[in-house]
C-alpha cells in the first residue's frame, strides 16, 4: 500500500467472474506521515482510507466484469461500519461482490478483514462509464499489471 500515491491495495489475489467476486491484499504501511496526525501517539488507519481501499477492491471487480471497457467512479457510500481499530502494519484482505448491476451504475458489497475477522464493510455505488480518454485506460491497464490483475480471468468470463 502506498498511501501517498493513493494506492490502497497491493495485489489482486483472485477474481471469479462466475460469482462474481474479488479478493485483494491491502497491507497498511508501518510508517506514514498520516499517522503523525491520525493520531499523535496512537496511530490508526483513517476510516476514509479504509473506504477507499474497499472502493479500489470493488472497482477492480467492475473493471474485470466490463473487460476494461468501462471505468467505475465512486458516487455513494452507504452502511459503512468500522468494526475495529486498524493499526500500522495490519495485513488486510479486501473482498467485494456485486449487489446490483444497473444501467450505468453498479452497487457493490465490500469488506476488509484481518485474520478472517471483519474490520469494516460498506455498500458502495459506482457510476460506470466508458474511459474518458485513452490515456486513462492505458494507465489503468498498467495499474492492473502492477496489481497482478489476472488477465486470464477476462478470457474465462
Amino acid at each position: 500500500m502506498r498511501i501517498e500515491y493513493f494506492q490502497l491495495i497491493d495485489r489482486i489475489t483472485e477474481i471469479d467472474l462466475a460469482e462474481p467476486k474479488i479478493l485483494t491484499q491491502a497491507t497498511i504501511p508501518s510508517e506514514s506521515t498520516i499517522f503523525e496526525g491520525h493520531f499523535p501517539g496512537y496511530p490508526l488507519m483513517p476510516g476514509v482510507l479504509l473506504i477507499e481501499a474497499m472502493a479500489q477492491t470493488a472497482g477492480w471487480l467492475i473493471i474485470a466484469t466490463t473487460k476494461f471497457e468501462r471505468m467505475p467512479f465512486l458516487i455513494g457510500v452507504k452502511e459503512a461500519k468500522f468494526r475495529t481499530f486498524v493499526q500500522p502494519g495490519a495485513a488486510l484482505v479486501g473482498s467485494a461482490t456485486i449487489a446490483h448491476e444497473g444501467s450505468g451504475y453498479t452497487v457493490m458489497s465490500t469488506k476488509l478483514s484481518l485474520n478472517n475477522k471483519p474490520v469494516c464493510n460498506a455498500q458502495l455505488t459506482f457510476r460506470v462509464m466508458p474511459f474518458p480518454n485513452p490515456t486513462f485506460e492505458t494507465e489503468m491497464r498498467a495499474a492492473g499489471k502492477r496489481l497482478e490483475f489476472p488477465m486470464e480471468a477476462l478470457a474465462d468470463g
Binding site: 458516487i75 455513494g76 448491476e101 444497473g102 444501467s103 451504475y105
Partner: peptide, 18 residues
C-alpha cells in the same frame, strides 16, 4: 440512481437508463 436501484430491486428489472 438511488431511486433506480430501488425500482430495479423492487420490480426485478434493469431500467435502461443509459
Amino acid at each position: 440512481l438511488d431511486i433506480a436501484f430501488a425500482i430495479d430491486k423492487s420490480f426485478g428489472i434493469k431500467m435502461p437508463l443509459e
